[in-house]
Structures are given as C-alpha cells and as structure tokens.
C-alpha cells in the first residue's frame, strides 16, 4: 500500500462519516461542522488527483466562506434542536434497502466498467495533473459559454433571495 492509497482511504472514509453525521446530527451546528469535515476531506481527494487549484478553491470557498455563512445563520436564527416527525414507514422499510441496493449496484457497475477495470488493475486513473493554467484555458476558451451563463444563474439566485427576504409593501 502506497501513501496516496492510504490517504485516499482515510479521506474517503472521513468524507462518508462526515456526510452521515451531517444528516443524522440533531443539533444544526453539529451538522455544519460535519459539513466542514466533508469539504476538507474532498479537498484532499482533489489534491490527490493533482488538482491543486480546485482543492484550494474548495477550502477557501466551501470550507471557508460558505461555512462561515452557515454558522452565522444558525447563530442568528438561534436554531434549536431539530424536531423529528414520525419516520415514514415507506422510507424506513422500502427506501433504506433500495438506497443501499442502488449504492451497491452503482459500485458494481463502476467496477465492472472499462475504466473501473483499468483503475483496479492499476493501469488507468487520471495521471494528467490539471494545472491552474490549463484549467483557466479550458474555462475561458473552450467552456466560455457555460462560464458566462453561470453569471445569469447567480443573478437568478440573488433575485430569489430578494424575493424571499423583501418585506411586503
């Protein structure tokens, strides 16, 4: 077992544990902190794939800025312990097994695929490191249109916040 391999598994397990805690925790602040864990472990995974820029952005924007906002909102709203309604029977007895089945099926199909077999045999995997320079070339030349369209998407989100927050006249 090589070092990247060990780091990968540690971070992958941390990410999954964080995600589960995020859903299961009853205190909103615990959920928020679990989300930080998820974001940071994902950043490490990006680093392992050779995407330094994405990893940095992940830490700065998601684990940093977005999470600060989350924590502030939780603090300002003084959000208490989450109230649970009765669990839906359907979700418990049909949803959970089906969800696990989907997870296993996806894992199997991914492993079964051409790429999956290559990675399992140690041949494939991405070894092309994505430098910031390459990334920006892709973003501002080849994928300029989705990049520009995202600005409209953000404008829509701002409008939405305005609609929800504005006082009635």
């Amino acid at each position: 077992m090589t070092l990247p391999f060990i780091v990968f598994f540690v971070c992958a397990i941390l990410a999954v544990v964080g995600a589960l805690t995020l859903i299961l925790a009853r205190e909103p602040i615990h959920s928020a902190l679990a989300l930080v864990l998820v974001m940071v472990s994902l950043a490490v995974l990006y680093l392992l794939l050779g995407a330094e820029f994405i990893a940095a952005v992940q830490i700065i924007v998601y684990a940093g800025a977005v999470m600060v906002l989350f924590v502030f909102v939780i603090m300002l709203l003084n959000a208490g312990v989450e109230e649970r309604t009765d669990y839906s029977k359907l979700a418990k007895y049909a949803g959970l097994p089906l969800g696990i089945f989907l997870l296993l099926a996806l894992a199997y199909w991914m492993f079964d695929s051409f790429i999956g077999k290559q990675i399992a045999n140690g041949v494939g995997g991405t070894n092309a490191s994505v430098s910031t320079r390459e990334l920006s070339a892709q973003l501002f030349q080849k994928y300029l249109f989705p990049f520009e369209a995202t600005s409209i998407l953000i404008l829509i989100a701002i409008l939405g916040a305005l609609v929800l927050a504005k006082k009635d006249e």
């Binding site: 989705p146 995202t150 998407l153 409008l159 939405g160 929800l164 009635d168």
Partner: peptide, 23 residues
C-alpha cells in the same frame, strides 16, 4: 455541462416562482 447550467437557470427561477405567494 452547458445543458446543466440551462437546466439550473430554468429550475431555480421556477423554484422561486412556485413560492411567489409568500403569504
């Protein structure tokens, strides 16, 4: 990816519009 941005533009706008009668 372009399609995804288009889908989000139309979806997010309509999420907000669906809840437009806030009262």
């Amino acid at each position: 990816v372009t399609a995804f941005i288009g889908l989000e533009m139309s979806s997010i706008s309509t999420y907000i519009l669906a809840g437009f009668r806030r009262r």
